[in-house]
Design a protein around this nucleic acid. Structure first.
Length: 562
RNA sequence: GCGCCCGUAGCUCAGUUGGAUAGAGCGACUGGCUUCGAACCAGUAGGCCGCAGGUUCAAUUCCUGCCGGGCGCACCA
C-alpha cells in the first residue's frame, strides 16, 4: 500500500522505542528491523507492526506488555490525521487504523497516473533478455507453447512496467537433425502423392500438416522433385516446410498478442562461425578432451554432475554446442540478466548449460531459468491425452478458436509457473460466474455502464477527475477495502518481478473485482446526492484504471460492454 | 539410486523474504433483484496444512529424515 505511510510509521515507532529507553522503562541494545505491513484482515486495523514481539526478548518484557507501553507513547504522538487509532492486540501486534486522508491520497495517485498507474522504477533500467517459446519449426504450436507464450509475454510486460528494459527473443532452431527429419517427412508424403509406395518411419513427423505441406508443393512445383537428386530435394523440403511452419507460428503468436523483438536464427548464428570460435576457446582453455572419438566438455569442475559431449564421434555437434555459444552470446550482448523459459523436461539441462557458460568465462548467475510446468487439458473432467509422436495434440490455434484469446491467456497464467496447470476447456468456454476472466471483465464493464448512465442522465461530458475526490467526505467499510486493494497494485507487480512469475497478478485482479462487486451491491454510485455521486464516480474510475492496466499486462481485453 | 517440482476443505488451488482464529473459487445447503448490468452479493457446512523431528517469542512457511505423486538423469533436442 502506501509505502510512505509505512515508512513514516516505522520512524515514529523507532522514536517511541528510544523514548521508552531514555525514560528507563525498558532497555535494549540494538533496534531490530521494524516492519510495518498492511494487515490481511480489517479487524486488525489497516497496518500493523511486530516490533513489540521482535523486541520483547531484548527488553525482557512480555510482548503484549511492551506493546502496551509503546501504544501509550504513540498516543501522545501526532500523526497529522493519518492515524485514527492505535492499539495492541493478540500476541503483541500493534495495529493502526488510518483516517480518511491516506485513502484519498491513494485514489489521487491512481487518477493522476491513469494508464501509467502501476509503473515503478524497481528495475532501475536494468536490461533483461527473456527467451521463450522457441519451438522448433517442425510443427504447430501446442498447448505447452501456449502457456510459455502467455507467461513470457506477460512477464515481459510486467517487468517493463516495473522499470526494466526488456527484450523478447525467440530462438529459432532451424538447422540440424530435426529439420532434416522434417524435410524427409514431407518429401515422403510428396512422393506418396504421386502414387509411389513408401514406408513412413515411426520417428518421422506424423501430423496431417505434413501431408498438407506436401500437397502445397505438388500444386506449386508439380513433379519436378521426383526427378531430382534426393539430397537436393530433402534440402528444399526442409527449407520450404520450416519456412511455412514458421509463418503459421508467427501468425499464431501474433493472434495471441505475443510479439517478439527478435527471432534468433540458429542457422544464421552457426554461419557466423561463433559456435566454432567458442569450441576453440574451450579447447584452448583446456576444458575439453577427446575420448572414444568424441570431444568432451570438462563440465564437472563447473558444477555439472558429469562431463558432456560437445561433438559426437560422427562429427556432428550435440545440442549443447550451439546452445552454449548462443547463451554466451546473449550474456555478452550487454544484458544484466538473461532469462529462459523451459519445460520441465529440460530442468536437468540447467547445470550443464551453466557449466558451459561458466567455462566460456561468463557469470552463470546472470542466467535465470524458469521451469514452467506443463498444462493438461481437461474436458468435462476427462483428461485429453496427447502424443506429439502420434500427431495427437491440441494446438494453441485450437485453444484460441475454442475459448478466445482473453480466456486462453488468463487461464495459462492462473497458476504459479511452478505448478502443474489443469486447463478445463469446459470451464473456459463458460460465459458465467465460474469463469474468472468474465468475473473480472464484468467488473470493468459494469463500471463502464455506470459512466454511460451518468453521462446519459446528466448530459455531462466532464471528465471525472482529481477534483471530485474532495467529495468523498466519509468512506464506507467496503470503500476502504476497495481502495486498500487498489493501493497494492505496484507491490503485486514488484512481487511478479521478484518471483519471475505473472501469476500473482491474476489473483490480484480477481480480488480487485471481488472488492468492487462487494462495494457495488452495498452502495449506489449514482444517487440523489450530487456530492456523493461525484465522489463515488471518482472511486470507481480508479477501480476501472487498475482493472484495465492490470488486464493489459496479462494481455487480456478490458471490455466496455459484454 | 541421484536431482527438480508438488502433497493445504469433496474438487481446483492461494497463502513469496516466518506472524494473530489457515483463505478463495467450484460443488452442497440457505437467503437477496420495482433501484447504476443477478455474468452479482450475503450466509451455513466442510481442515491432523502428507508424517516425524529440529531451529524460536512465533512454523503451512526455514532445516533434516521418511511417505506419496509428477518429471528428469543421452554421443536426443
Amino acid at each position: 500500500m502506501n509505502k510512505i505511510i509505512c515508512a513514516t510509521l516505522s520512524g515514529v515507532l523507532e522514536k517511541a522505542l528510544l523514548k521508552l529507553k531514555d525514560s528507563g522503562k525498558i532497555s535494549f541494545e540494538t533496534l531490530s528491523q521494524i516492519r510495518v505491513e498492511p494487515t490481511k484482515d480489517p479487524k486488525f486495523g489497516d497496518v500493523s507492526t511486530n516490533v513489540a514481539m521482535a523486541m520483547a526478548a531484548q527488553a525482557n518484557l512480555p510482548a503484549p506488555r511492551l506493546g502496551a507501553l509503546l501504544v501509550e507513547v504513540l498516543k501522545e504522538a501526532s500523526f497529522n490525521g493519518v492515524v485514527e487509532s492505535v492499539e495492541v492486540a493478540g500476541p503483541g501486534f500493534i495495529n493502526f487504523r488510518l483516517g480518511r486522508d491516506p485513502w484519498i491520497e491513494v485514489l489521487a495517485e491512481i487518477l493522476k497516473s491513469g494508464a501509467g498507474y502501476g509503473k515503478s522504477s524497481l528495475g532501475q533500467g536494468k536490461k533483461i533478455l527473456i527467451e521463450f517459446v522457441s519451438a522448433n519449426p517442425t510443427g504447430p504450436l501446442t498447448l505447452a507453447h501456449g502457456r510459455q507464450a502467455a507467461v513470457g509475454d506477460s512477464l515481459a510486460r510486467i517487468m517493463k512496467t516495473s522499470g526494466f528494459q526488456v527484450h523478447k527473443e525467440y530462438y529459432l532452431n532451424d538447422r540440424g537433425r530435426q529439420m532434416s527429419v522434417l524435410g524427409r517427412s514431407v518429401y515422403l508424403r510428396y512422393q506418396e502423392c504421386f502414387g509411389k509406395k513408401i514406408t513412413f518411419p515411426e520417428d518421422f513427423y506424423q501430423g496431417d500438416y505434413i501431408l498438407d505441406l506436401a500437397k502445397e508443393v505438388v500444386e506449386k512445383e508439380a513433379d519436378r522433385f521426383l526427378k531430382e537428386d534426393e539430397k537436393d530435394a530433402v534440402e528444399f523440403f526442409s527449407k520450404y516446410a520450416g519456412d511455412r511452419i514458421m509463418e503459421d507460428i508467427r501468425k499464431d503468436l501474433s493472434d495471441f498478442d505475443v510479439e517478439f523483438d527478435h527471432y534468433f536464427s540458429e542457422r544464421a548464428f552457426v554461419a557466423t562461425g561463433r559456435v566454432e570460435a567458442c569450441l576453440n576457446e574451450l579447447k584452448k582453455k583446456g576444458y575439453t578432451y577427446e575420448q572414444e572419438g568424441a570431444l568432451w566438455l570438462r563440465s564437472t569442475p563447473f558444477g555439472d554432475d558429469k562431463d558432456r559431449v560437445l561433438i559426437k564421434s560422427s562429427g556432428e555437434m550435440t545440442y549443447i554446442s550451439p546452445d552454449a555459444a548462443y547463451h554466451e552470446d546473449k550474456l555478452r550482448r550487454g544484458y544484466d540478466e538473461v532469462v529462459d523459459i523451459w519445460g520441465p523436461d529440460h530442468h536437468g539441462y540447467i547445470p550443464r548449460l551453466k557449466a558451459a557458460v561458466a567455462a566460456l568465462g561468463q557469470n552463470p548467475e546472470r542466467l535465470k531459468v524458469i521451469i514452467l510446468q506443463l498444462a493438461t487439458l481437461f474436458e468435462g473432467g476427462q483428461k485429453l491425452s496427447m502424443s506429439t509422436r502420434r500427431g495427437e495434440y491440441v494446438t494453441l490455434r485450437q485453444i484460441m478458436d475454442e475459448v478466445g484469446k482473453d480466456v486462453g491467456r488468463y487461464f495459462f497464467l492462473m497458476r504459479k509457473t511452478d505448478s502443474h496447470l489443469d486447463f478445463d476447456l469446459e470451464l473456459a468456454k463458460k460465459e458465467s460466474l465460474e469463469n474468472p476472466v468474465y468475473y473480472i471483465q464484468y467488473a470493468h464493464a459494469r463500471i463502464s455502464s455506470i459512466f454511460e448512465k451518468y453521462m446519459r442522465e446528466s448530459g455531462s461530458h466532464e471528465e471525472i477527475g482529481l477534483n471530485s475526490l474532495s467529495c468523498l467526505k466519509t468512506l464506507e467499510k467496503e470503500e476502504v477495502e476497495l481502495i486498500k486493494r487498489l493501493g497494492l497494485f505496484q507491490e503485486v507487480l514488484e512481487g511478479c518481478c521478484h518471483s519471475l512469475d505473472p501469476y500473482p497478478l491474476t489473483d490480484y485482479l480477481l480480488k480487485v473485482a471481488q472488492s468492487f462487486h462487494q462495494f457495488y451491491t452495498q452502495h449506489r454510485v449514482i444517487s440523489e446526492s450530487q456530492e456523493k455521486t461525484q465522489g463515488r464516480l471518482a472511486l470507481v474510475k480508479a477501480v476501472k484504471i487498475v482493472l484495465r492496466n492490470g488486464l493489459g499486462l496479462l494481455g487480456v481485453n478490458a471490455p466496455e460492454a459484454m
